[in-house]
Design a protein around this nucleic acid. Structure first.
Lengths: 293, 293
DNA sequence: TCGGATTACGTGCACCGTAATGATC
DNA sequence: GATCATTACGGTGCACGTAATCCGA
């Protein structure tokens, strides 16, 4: 069994070529590294280096050993990383979502589902969500489409449609639908925490001036005080996020209707199933009545 | 980066359950192991154990960490094992064969093919050959049939037919073939280094008394001095291993005709190809003339 | 003269064993 | 009185840094 520090030293020499450079990177002195290489050769019992007067190179065996060392070092790192991730996942569940609404649904369900566990949730970009899932930063993520990744498992569990709210005396208030094209060029209120909705708005409304409000309170006050159209969604409206004196008009473009996919690593599929069955009930309770109307 | 000895200690505790037993197995004292577990918890920063007054158990995180530790220890062991195997394979090629003749063909070819490399060869049982190949004990093995193993690659490169040699005045000397059935019940000379041929003889000649000669010289002298039938093969006879005053008669049973397969790990396929093309020439030179007869 | 490897020497720390204590059955 | 874990203490091996030497461009 070869000491881990010797493998680190070997790896450094393999990566930096000279004792001098490698020692510098390792924050040790040259003699220390020189001794380590001697010790390694003694441990292996076979030559690992070509030595010239003031040069040292890995020979074929040495290169091969360095490869193996890299793997062993990775495995060693993983002991700590994976164990910490495992421990965290037992005490804390972090979910990431492309938009705020799925979080509103999931958090209460998670609380029922995993009692005694600390919950956290955040809105993030889609690619950050996927890498975060694989790094165990998130246990569950919500994406606006099914990911193409065979390490994860994904189930659709919600949809959401973008609305615009306007004062009741606004000319659009009588319409029963509206399109991005209608809105483009206007000044519009949009929440900064809208996640991927913001990206959609920016791409579909290149000529609009989007007044992004990162503070939810400020957003509500502005919607109340101004006559500016403001973005909202069917789910949020049904959830009670209604500004009095305003009418909600749906946006008909297909981009304004999204299907969410609850996603986790395959190893976590059991938890996902449990979560989904519990959240079905809640979703039905929340959205059922309106769908039956 | 966690010291390897700590991982070993953790692994031992996971395997033996109590500090006492684990310490015993590790050949260290209980206090030493107790301290190691403390150190591990400090390194991880999260609890790994349930502690009662005079008991200690791995908790879920601890069990998970022990799993990871096992992998890291394996990877560490592999650094030494694989590197030594690699180094040996660069300085020494060991071939294993189920029978002596393929070795006679391969050794000279290997000498041409891998100049400066030490060569060794031995006859061994078929299952020992396969495990030896996977343990890097052998680089190449010769089997009497294609192995069913998807880690290896196998090419047929030789065949051999069993003969019996008898004094010219023996009644069988006039026959142009003979069968195991004819031979069963007789006393027969057979070389101890015949490898798998010996197994075939034993199974096909349950009633014969096989006089096994482990010394090749003794075998030749006995064949010369006695009138006992002696086993031989087409390949050996063509190679000049002829006892004067004896006639060779082929054995017609299908078991007396074998197809050899030269086999190596898939990672070594390039070497095998090189070896095969070089050995083709030699095989043709040795066997070509008789096949054309 | 600088970049690079090695040898010689002294030091501090970390891991170990011994001994003793406490707890449970 | 077994078995098992933990704490306290003293010793030692060993990995490190410093200093010095040697070699080549």
């Amino acid at each position: 069994m070869i000491d881990i520090y010797l493998l680190e030293h070997l790896d450094a020499l393999a990566r930096f070529g000279t004792l001098r450079r490698a020692a510098e990177e390792l924050h040790i002195t040259e003699p220390a590294l020189s001794r380590s290489m001697k010790k390694l050769e003694a441990a292996f019992g076979v030559p690992l280096f070509f030595r010239e007067k003031n040069r040292i190179f890995l020979n074929e065996t040495g290169k091969y050993a360095a490869e193996c060392a890299k793997k062993a070092l990775d495995a060693n790192r993983e002991v700590l990383e994976k164990t910490l991730a495992f421990d965290r996942s037992r005490h804390m569940i972090v979910i990431g979502s492309c938009a705020p609404y799925p979080i509103r649904v999931l958090l209460p369900v998670l609380q029922d589902c995993f009692a005694g566990v600390t919950l956290a949730a955040e809105v993030a970009e889609e690619d950050m969500l996927l890498t975060g899932l694989q790094d165990s930063r998130y246990q569950f993520i919500v994406l606006p489409q099914k990911p193409e990744n065979d390490q994860v498992v994904s189930m659709n569990f919600l949809d959401e449609r973008l609305y615009i709210t306007i004062p009741e005396n606004h000319p659009w208030a009588l319409r029963d639908s509206i399109s991005f094209q209608d809105l483009d060029g206007s000044r519009l209120l949009v929440s900064g925490s809208a996640g991927f909705w913001l990206k959609i708005c920016k791409s579909k409304l290149p000529n609009a001036s989007l007044l992004i409000q990162s503070d939810a309170d400020a957003m509500a006050k502005l919607a109340d005080a101004s006559s500016l159209p403001a973005f909202n969604s069917d789910r949020m409206l049904k959830g009670g996020y209604i500004v009095p004196g305003r009418t909600a008009v749906p946006i008909i473009d297909p981009e304004a209707h999204v299907q969410y996919y609850l996603t986790c690593m395959k190893s976590n599929k059991a938890k996902l199933d449990r979560l989904l069955t519990l959240s079905q009930a809640r979703i039905i309770r929340l959205s059922g009545p309106s769908e039956s109307k």
